[in-house]
């Protein structure tokens, strides 16, 4: 039985980088299968919020529960093993490993032993990686690197996939391709948090959206609401 509570339940997160107070009591709740857009201009705390949830930057105040278990100060690998996969900004592929090794090293069954995302299925999702299996991570184009990081995240059979600026710096056609695949992945029932500046592309995929301004949530609502009120995007995102 899959539990029906939220995968991530983060409440009142306060986070600091050195002396600067980046997050001021942010809540982030993700239910199974839900796709959430996390938006805001640069420096508003999106990545910091993700890092707090992932255990990479433990919050100063507030709590993070993953599947009902308190993981506020847990090691990042425990949070990952609770079913959360991370595709960081800048991608974070291992350049000293081949494409094949990047995928294999991450392979593991998900929570409850699910093994839907096998090596073969990931390669079928990203056929371009198939021709590159023996190449080092650094020999890939930006788009291929992004496919590799998403594929690698899927190898962990996550219940929640976190994508930080997945299409940043990619050519429009490649970005479109990535968005199409993200849409496919979300349709399989994997929950997702998408951070991106492309409001239209994000809201096509997401159910719910959060906008951060200076470390606070200023808007939370459905994609339909955002589309119906272009003023919101204009005011907080400048788009």
């Amino acid at each position: 039985m899959r539990d029906v509570g939220p995968i991530v339940d983060a409440r009142g997160i306060h986070a600091h980088y050195g002396l600067s107070h980046v997050l001021h009591g942010v809540d982030l709740i993700v239910h199974p299968g839900e796709a959430i857009g996390l938006m805001g201009r640069n420096g508003m705390g999106k990545t910091t919020l993700l890092r707090s949830v992932l255990g990479l930057l433990p919050p100063r105040r507030g709590s993070v529960h993953v599947r009902g278990v308190d993981m506020t100060r847990a090691a990042p690998h425990r949070i990952a093993r609770a079913g959360i996969a991370y595709v960081p900004e800048g991608r974070g592929i291992f350049p000293n490993l081949t494409v094949r090794e990047n995928l294999i090293m991450a392979a593991r069954p998900g929570v409850g032993g699910r093994n839907e995302w096998t090596y073969d299925r990931v390669l079928a999702t990203f056929p371009r990686l198939m021709e590159r299996l023996g190449h080092g991570g650094q020999q890939l184009s930006g788009g291929e690197q992004q496919m590799l990081t998403i594929g690698r995240a899927l190898m962990t059979n996550p219940d929640l996939l976190i994508l930080d600026e997945a299409t940043e710096g990619l050519a429009p056609l490649i970005a479109q391709e990535i968005w199409r695949i993200i849409g496919q992945i979300c349709a399989t029932g994997v929950a997702a948090i998408l951070v991106d500046k492309n409001l239209a592309a994000v809201t096509r995929v997401t159910d719910r959206n959060i906008i951060l301004v200076k470390g606070r949530v200023v808007f939370e609502g459905t994609s339909a609401e955002l589309r119906a009120n272009p003023a919101i995007g204009l005011q907080h995102l400048g788009v």
Binding site: P76, A80, R81, G92, F94, N96, L97, E101
Partner: peptide
Amino acid sequence: TRIGMTIRAGASNREMAQSLGIDIR
């Protein structure tokens, strides 16, 4: 081996390896 891949991955990017569920410590 997979252990070797894990060691090399951890050497190149510790944080990323942890976020993929590897107990780097």
